[in-house]
């Protein structure tokens, strides 16, 4: 499914079902998706190259969003925009906590999701 030239999104999400759903949506939008089930996997993935966007769930086993964000900043600074992908009431607060670039709440409307993703990956000049 990896398309050459297409932008890459790193999805860090421990829930299989949600991850599959998001992958389908991003596929539909024409982006490459790399998946990681927790922060540690995500960090390993990042060693192979930085994506254009990181969609980050917060509560995960092994290494959670907070720990990942701290490690990411330490290694790559602002190498890629980080968007918190979390339960609606928390999302904004979590984003603030880890100094993320944006947030998408769960559950979400497809329309909102698509426009937000596009806004991050295709900023108008």
């Amino acid at each position: 499914m990896v398309m050459k030239g297409a932008k890459t999104v790193l999805l860090v999400e421990d829930d299989e079902d949600i991850a599959s759903l998001v992958v389908l949506l991003l596929d539909e939008l024409g982006y490459n998706v790399e998946r990681a089930a927790n922060g540690r996997e995500a960090l390993a993935t990042l060693e192979r190259g930085l994506p254009h966007l990181i969609l980050l769930d917060m509560k995960m086993p092994v290494m959670n969003g907070w720990a990942f964000a701290a490690e990411f900043r330490a290694r790559h600074q602002r190498g890629a925009p980080v968007v918190v992908f979390s339960a609606a009431d928390d999302a904004a607060k979590r984003a603030e906590e880890i100094d993320a670039d944006g947030w998408i709440g769960k559950p979400f409307e497809f329309e909102d999701f698509r426009s937000l993703i596009r806004r991050w990956l295709e900023p108008r000049e």
Partner: peptide, 21 residues
């Protein structure tokens, strides 16, 4: 409880939307 509920809600809602699409 709320946080844990959100995940299944997201899944139900998402896949329903997906199928409708």
């Amino acid at each position: 409880a709320a946080h844990e509920l959100k995940t299944p809600v997201t899944i139900v809602k998402g896949y329903a939307q997906l199928l409708l699409g």
